[in-house]
Write a protein that binds this DNA or RNA. Structure first.
Lengths: 223, 223
DNA sequence: ACCTGAACACCGTTCAAGT
DNA sequence: ACCTGAACACCGTTCAAGT
């Protein structure tokens, strides 16, 4: 009775006790992030989920910031790149960005990471590279392309974050609504009259609108 | 000698011991945020700066999230609104956004808050109202104006955040550079060839570029 | 009504000690 | 080389007790 058997099945993907590795840590962290939001991304919670102490993680990862970068990139694994038969450069551009958006929607935490963490992992780079190539096909070059890619990704990230933070904290949403309700129509006439347009959350249409604005704007500036 | 005179100079704004108030708390929090970045915005640090315990703050503020919203709004107090003699609607629009950007630059923490916190305070509203009015002057109405105002503010916020997070963590900047240096020109040809354009941080020009892209894009979509 | 101390349930990170 | 326990220096928030 001294050594209790370490055979437990129940838990998600841990047969007996997989050896630690950067990969396993990142994978576990991403799952926590998906399930619990950004609050789930903590060294201690990750360690607990792996049946170990927090200090063990530091063998594979320098700190939480670095781990966050890995988690973000690993989360972007699911972004889909339309192949060259899938329509015009513009369609394909919209489609990657839509895929990117969808991935961020799936877990609010990732959307937040995408705004807060500098994306330098291979998946982030692949997305940027793909966007740059589409822009080039569309005749958008050099600085316009570089800054444009950034702007497009930023826009998608923020739409996702805004959406997800609304879903997350219904309290805050109510706070917003009620604050807009009681808006002084004399002090803020435009906001008051545009209340419905600003709160409208038909994300799809709004997202498309923004992408087109940005794209057309870039194209116009180039001519 | 019972009521000590409230004329003391030495400490920033605390004579002997001012009574607590929401205003004083927010003011202190903002100062901490400016001096120490986002890490300085903690209930315990604010309490310590006010010579009291953290629990005392909860009389005036429901939680850290709410306090953060107040701090953001109070920080936006310094944004300058060009008067109607200051040029075309477009010039004035660019000028508020520039002022907004400058305020965010001054304290990295505020830039982060502006991306993370839902801005519903009076100052935030005033800025949005001002932008909506300029857009209207420029012939941009309803949904375009509502979404456009959001997009413009988002862009400014993110430029400030990106800049400030670079200033803050030189480590990360180095990490980025070196990651771009060793970029596989075969796997990421476009990124490799645009390396200089993407890293270039002449913020001024880039900021203007983005604003013009967005504005022109909106105008184009309206026609 | 306002303020406080103490406690609860958390953090990230380090480091000496074990295997 | 990898893992661990224990410790350090922090968090936000609550709550009974004081004034």
């Amino acid at each position: 009775m001294n050594n209790p058997p370490k055979t437990v099945i129940s838990r998600r993907s841990r047969p007996a006790k997989e050896p630690l590795s950067k990969d396993l840590i990142v994978k576990t962290a991403l799952e926590l992030l998906k399930n619990e939001g950004s609050a789930g991304l903590s060294m201690r919670k990750i360690a607990k989920a792996l049946d170990t102490g927090p200090s063990s993680l530091y063998v594979y990862v320098t700190n939480l910031q670095e781990l966050s970068a890995y988690v973000l990139d690993y989360g972007l694994d699911k972004v889909v790149f339309p192949s060259s038969q899938d329509g015009s450069w513009k369609t394909r551009l919209f489609d990657v960005l839509n895929s990117y958006l969808t991935v961020l929607y799936e877990s609010p935490g990732i959307a937040e990471l995408s705004l807060t963490t500098i994306p330098i992992g291979p998946h982030s780079l692949a997305i940027t590279e793909y966007i740059l190539q589409r822009l080039q096909e569309g005749g958008i070059h050099s600085t316009s392309a570089a800054w444009g890619a950034d702007l497009l990704l930023l826009y998608a990230s923020s739409v996702a974050f805004e959406q997800s933070s609304r879903d997350q904290k219904g309290t805050t949403l109510l706070a917003i609504s009620s604050s807009y309700q009681s808006l002084d129509a004399i002090q803020y006439p435009m906001i008051a009259s545009l209340r419905n347009e600003m709160t409208s959350s038909d994300g799809e249409e709004r997202f498309r609108w923004g992408l087109e604005v940005i794209l057309h704007g870039i194209l116009l500036k180039q001519e």
